[in-house]
């Protein structure tokens, strides 16, 4: 057990683990709904689409998180506009805004005289730079996400399975959708510090997708997603420690590796069971 205890006995590593766990908790909770509603493309686009907001906020000396939020709002509005006015499917609008925002981000960055440290921290973020005040923010985000999901649970559930029914039941699917996107944005802007906007989407979608492989009910799915997310964070951190590789990217990568391991395990155990039933 030394490989486990040694790294985690350091107060610094405990703080990193705590911060990353809070980040992945926020991400997995909303990620479950992203997976259920098939919003992955939207989520991925939002995670990358915040880049120009951050770059512009940096250039003008504003708060970077506010820049990210502004970009997310602009992007959501743009997607809606394409969907309604151009009468194109929503994924076309998402695709257009996704590449448009990303291109804008790179253009703004190319005009900045120097590509400075705080900006690259946002893009490639580093969980190892987590400070006490970041933990507070991440804990707050996790608490807000959990509370809002509890309040909107019924609305989210009906929206996920039948939008028409939600309207009939007076559950205001439009508002529920908006709240969901707001939570998604919150997860992105609070956890890009852990792995950066380039990889944050892994923590949103992978643990939830893994959970959907093993459980059915939504509350258990959220709990399992948080569990798998924690597994990705701790295994990523330990692998980074022992193999001397970048921590944030290892966590994001592990969340995807765990999905495929669980999938393979499920397939193998299903195969074993089939002949017995046939007998």
């Amino acid at each position: 057990m030394e490989w486990l205890i040694d790294p985690l006995s350091e107060p610094f590593m405990q703080r990193v683990l705590l911060g990353s766990t809070l980040a992945v908790m926020t991400a997995s909770l909303i990620g479950t709904w992203v997976v259920l509603r098939g919003l992955s493309f939207m989520g991925d686009a939002l995670a990358h689409g915040v880049t120009p907001g951050i770059a512009l906020a940096f250039a003008l000396g504003f708060n970077l998180t506010l820049g990210a939020v502004a970009a997310a709002v602009a992007m959501t509005l743009g997607i809606n506009l394409v969907h309604r006015k151009a009468r194109l499917r929503e994924d076309t609008g998402i695709g257009l805004l996704f590449v448009g925002m990303l291109a804008l981000g790179v253009i703004i960055m190319s005009r900045l005289p120097s590509f400075s440290s705080s900006l690259s921290t946002i893009l490639f973020g580093d969980t190892l730079g987590i400070r006490q005040e970041d933990i507070l923010l991440q804990g707050l985000a996790a608490a807000v996400t959990l509370t809002v999901i509890m309040v909107f649970y019924r609305a989210f559930l009906v929206l996920s399975f039948n939008e028409e029914k939600a309207r009939m039941l007076g559950l205001r699917p439009g508002l529920a959708h908006f709240v969901m996107l707001a939570l998604l944005t919150l997860a992105i802007v609070t956890s890009f510090r852990t792995v950066g906007t380039l990889l944050v989407f892994a923590l949103i979608v992978a643990p939830a997708a893994t959970a959907s492989l093993v459980v059915r009910r939504v509350p258990t799915m959220m709990a399992a997603a948080v569990g798998f997310g924690f597994l990705a964070v701790i295994s990523g951190l330990l692998i980074s420690w022992h193999a001397d590789i970048a921590a944030g990217a290892t966590m994001a990568g592990m969340s995807v590796v765990i999905f495929f391991l669980v999938l393979a395990f499920r397939e193998l155990s299903n195969k074993k069971r089939v002949p017995r039933i046939a007998n």
Partner: peptide
């Protein structure tokens, strides 16, 4: 970007010598 062990090892040092002036963009945090 450093590994978790390297970041932890920093805390055992009596002195860390960095270049600064924004060179270590991935390390500043």
């Amino acid at each position: 970007s450093p590994s978790a062990r390297q970041a932890s090892r920093l805390r055992e040092a009596v002195l860390v010598v960095a270049n600064g002036v924004g060179l270590e963009e991935g390390l500043s945090d």
